[in-house]
Nucleic acid binder design. Structure first.
Lengths: 341, 341
DNA sequence: TTGTAGGCGTTATCAT
DNA sequence: ATGATAACGCCTACAA
């Protein structure tokens, strides 16, 4: 049986209050007693029981993390950031994955609250209204990741998706591309996916290029699906000269589809990605992408939570981290007059 | 303030014992009372406090998972399996990542025990002796993943790494390859990496091919490192006709290195991988690999833990799951007489 | 400085 | 069938 505070107290011939004081440094304890207690603690291998502790303190030093899935580079990188920051602040994390099911999301929200999680980091591809209200009901801080959009209501940290998409589109235009297809996500119609689409359209408009709806294609985050929709796009005959995929995985699906059709990337069609997960620079051709500071997004989220836990008022509930356009090998400059046969 | 069992009891005009009974179905409660209590519970939105519960029950329905890192496809897939099985068994998981630091590993082992985790799933690239003794000290079930080796001491689940490596090597030999380089991991000298090397050597020996130590190269699990050591190998002049990488990531690093040197995969040099993480079939050329049932490894590990928690005696503490050789596009048959110029 | 005792929200063992 | 009440391991006024 594990030693308890009582065992320590008895063996040291002091009260449990004294033991409690030495393990928490809460009040002064005379040096001799203190040392004696410490010795016994060591001898018995006593460790305070965190469960009992959180019952009385209503604190757990636990941060809950809710994600749609785990085996995902995008999420994994963010998780690394979260883990790192938690560790250095002595918090532990409990992870729940929801498969994007919003009832599951709500259940986990409740669960984490019940477990005395002192804060929750929430991530989801698509944001359901019930989930938003569930989040609002929770007393402890909840912060969302990658969720900034016009009418954001919950604290969040992310990049400026609209601006990033704008920049990428403009980059493509500067490279001579006019016929730019956008691969976006149909499972995320109302948050960052929307922001990205707006950025794309604005960039086109600002350059006087007409937005062609048939160049905006909807898929999900899988390679296979992306492969499929790009194959369809190619078969329709009206070829784009560039494809802007709003995730690296989609970009890879696109490249595979293009090459399997006998075209070359970037010689025939340029493809750019978004996020810059590890595979982006590992794949050949290396992907030109918008880089998101995934790791930092994780650390900042935790930092915000902990600040809130500690009672600091945040200046900004919506924090935007900087993104970066990274040029690699999947995009090529084309001659404008190529169109004029 | 959250409603407690006491609030429910008072409002319902019954004792807390009765309330406890209805929420646990532990003993018969008369129908009228039961319904009344249920109504109040609903009205107050009462949820039992799991912390208090685990304090008295010494149970937490929590399984701890210790991994070296999170943003890793290999681990992610296993995690998905773990998550899935836990969910369907109503267990929650708390995840700790160690960066492969063995002191950190021990700290987490202690922490999880303190948090009343009912079982622990442990994963590490390299197994330190102190960790092994720490694991043995823990009373609750601990099971390791991917750790079977000759003198295994802790319950584990994995594939037969030796046999898998043997099969892959033999496959290469059957494809006409004689000069087969092995890319293995220097950070894991004494567990599955060792098993794989033994399998490789045995296959060579059984075909009467001499094992050349300079064809066995040591790296780590990163693409960059793999790229580097393969580049070195190529520059030394004595070219292998095939490279057996013991992880898919290493295989990709190898392919990139080979192609950057102006050779083609698989025309000039064949490369095969190990694990079959998602990228393996997504990369071009698609990787010929040994497939590990990652997801199942996760689910089986949890199943074992839960069985142990429930007091069942396991027939086998070491479970071996089936692997599979998957032929794709990164390996090519060569003519034997090519050597004889 | 140190000890006593009440309480955190449950479950479980007694009586009733 | 129901209700007191003693744990569970710890923290923290309050007293001494």
């Amino acid at each position: 049986m594990k030693a308890t505070i009582k065992d320590v107290a008895e063996k040291a011939g002091v009260s449990i209050a004294t033991v409690s004081r030495v393990i928490n440094n809460s009040k002064q304890v005379s040096e001799p007693l203190r040392e004696k207690v410490l010795a016994i603690i060591d001898e018995l291998g006593y460790k305070p029981n965190p469960v009992a502790r959180s019952l009385v303190m209503k604190k757990s030093r636990l941060i809950g993390v809710i994600v749609p899935e785990m085996s995902n580079f995008f999420i994994g990188e963010i998780m690394n950031g979260i883990e790192e920051m938690c560790k250095s602040c002595q918090y532990d994390i409990i992870v729940c994955s929801t498969q994007g099911n919003h009832e599951q999301e709500i259940r986990y929200l409740d669960l984490l609250e019940a477990k005395q999680a002192e804060g929750i980091i929430f991530m989801s591809w698509k944001l359901h209204n019930d989930v938003v209200s569930a989040i609002k009901k929770i007393e402890n801080p909840v912060i969302m990741i990658n969720r900034n959009t016009i009418n954001s209501v919950v604290p969040s940290v992310s990049i400026d998706n609209k601006k990033a998409a704008y920049e990428m589109t403009q980059y493509l235009i500067n490279m001579g591309h006019q016929k730019i297809a956008l691969l976006r996500n149909s499972i995320d119609m109302d948050t960052f996916g929307l922001d990205q689409t707006i950025g794309y359209k604005e960039a086109l408009a600002d350059s006087g290029i007409k937005v062609e709806e048939q160049f905006i294609r909807y898929g999900d985050f899988s390679v296979d699906n992306s492969y499929k929709i790009v194959t369809e796009l190619l078969e329709e005959g009206n070829l784009p000269t560039a494809i802007f995929a709003t995730s690296d995985i989609m970009a890879i699906g696109a490249i595979n589809a293009i090459e399997d059709k006998g075209y070359n990337v970037p010689d025939d069609i340029s493809v750019v990605g978004f996020n810059d997960i590890k595979i982006a620079s590992l794949y050949r051709p290396k992907l030109t992408v918008i880089h998101q500071p995934l790791f930092s997004i994780g650390t900042v989220a935790v930092k915000m939570i902990i600040d809130k836990i500690d009672g600091y008022e945040l200046k900004n509930d919506i924090v935007i981290l900087p993104h970066k356009l990274i040029e690699r090998d999947s995009c090529k400059k084309i001659e404008i007059n190529e169109d004029e046969k």
